[in-house]
């Protein structure tokens, strides 16, 4: 019964290498920019990572199932604008607005999921098209100039603190824990992994593959909506392009963390590492005085590197 466990090594090797990269980066930036690690700064990064993190978690679900969602950025901007529009800054409106917004997210996810799964169309084409439609609708609604305000309670959610810990981060932690439990412990999570690895096999094992995949898109969009609420609180304004770049960020975080784009491998912990890395990269660049545009370049380069590396690692498996 003694056989080489080469294969299990590969998985932990991957996870360890990302962790190593993260630690190296942390150490490196601590040495180069010691003042970077001021408490204020760290808290700031935690806030930012929170909304990036939540949408990245949503993206994780979709990618695990073998898909991808490029409509998150557009959806998030829509939610941001809608929040301001519907509440007009009044806290009283928040208790009913937020559920409505989450439902809107669910609806978009349903649309995405249905077209992708039932009509068997490539995910990125559909979500790209939906993104454009959402952009157009949003611009029509606001006529180019969004109006309304972000209510105080949401502001608290996005940038407030409980003691020393940002509220946003607490929400993020909560979502993280729930996601982890669902993915690792719930039957749905098991099914999702199976579908991501091999849809055909999963189907012949009796798993309702269509339902699982559609659900992953709904989850992603709902999380994007939630993330948008927090984002709104953080930036305290309604902007037509508030979430620009969130699609790259969320996918990069997922990929950097080690979740494979072909599906089936990865998870919450992986994505968290990716989110942290992205957050660090973004902020260190600003802190080092480099032009803000370098962020985009850096993210893209790191993204390419990560995919290339992980594919290389994946291909050497037995």
């Amino acid at each position: 019964m003694l056989l080489p466990t080469k294969a299990t090594l590969k998985g932990s090797l991957r996870r360890n290498s990302i962790l190593t990269i993260l630690l190296v980066f942390l150490a490196g930036s601590a040495i180069l920019f010691p003042s970077f690690y001021k408490l204020n700064n760290i808290l700031n990064i935690l806030c930012q990572s929170s909304y990036i993190g939540i949408v990245s978690l949503g993206q994780t679900f979709v990618v695990l199932g073998g898909g991808i969602d490029l409509s998150v950025a557009s959806l998030m901007s829509c939610i941001n604008v809608l929040l301001a529009n519907l509440t007009l800054g009044k806290d009283a409106a928040v208790p009913w607005t937020i559920p409505v917004l989450l439902l809107v997210g669910a609806g978009i996810g349903l649309v995405n999921g249905f077209i992708i799964v039932k009509r068997r169309v490539p995910a990125f084409v559909v979500t790209l098209g939906v993104a454009v439609v959402l952009n157009g609708l949003r611009l029509i609604l606001t006529n180019g100039a969004p109006f309304g305000y972000i209510p105080r309670s949401v502001r608290f959610l996005g940038s407030g603190k409980l003691g020393i810990i940002p509220v946003a981060f607490l929400v993020f932690l909560l979502v993280m824990v729930v996601s982890h439990v669902v993915l690792k412990k719930a039957i749905f999570g098991r099914h999702l992994y199976a579908v991501g690895v091999n849809e055909k096999a999963s189907h012949s094992m009796g798993i309702r593959t269509d339902g699982v995949r559609i659900a992953s898109y709904v989850i992603c969009s709902v999380m994007a909506a939630l993330s948008a609420v927090i984002l709104s609180g953080y930036i305290n304004t309604a902007d037509n392009w508030s979430a620009k770049g969130m699609d790259l960020d969320s996918i990069a975080a997922v990929v950097l963390g080690g979740t494979m784009l072909e599906g089936g491998r990865g998870g919450v912990i992986y994505t968290m590492i990716g989110v942290l890395l992205i957050g660090l990269v973004t902020n260190v660049i600003v802190y080092a005085g480099l032009a803000i545009e370098i962020q985009l370049i850096a993210k893209a380069l790191v993204f390419i590197l990560a995919v290339a590396l992980y594919h290389g690692l994946a291909r050497t498996k037995a």
């Binding site: 039957i187 992994y193 690895v197 096999a201 498996k317």
Partner: peptide, 25 residues
């Protein structure tokens, strides 16, 4: 087979219902 998953994962797929309670495995 679900090739990148473990032997254990492959083994329990059909009986997930049996080994879980309220949806949790």
């Amino acid at each position: 087979i679900l090739s990148s998953l473990s032997v254990k994962e492959n083994a329990i797929v059909p009986i997930l219902d049996r080994i879980s309670r309220m949806g949790f495995v």
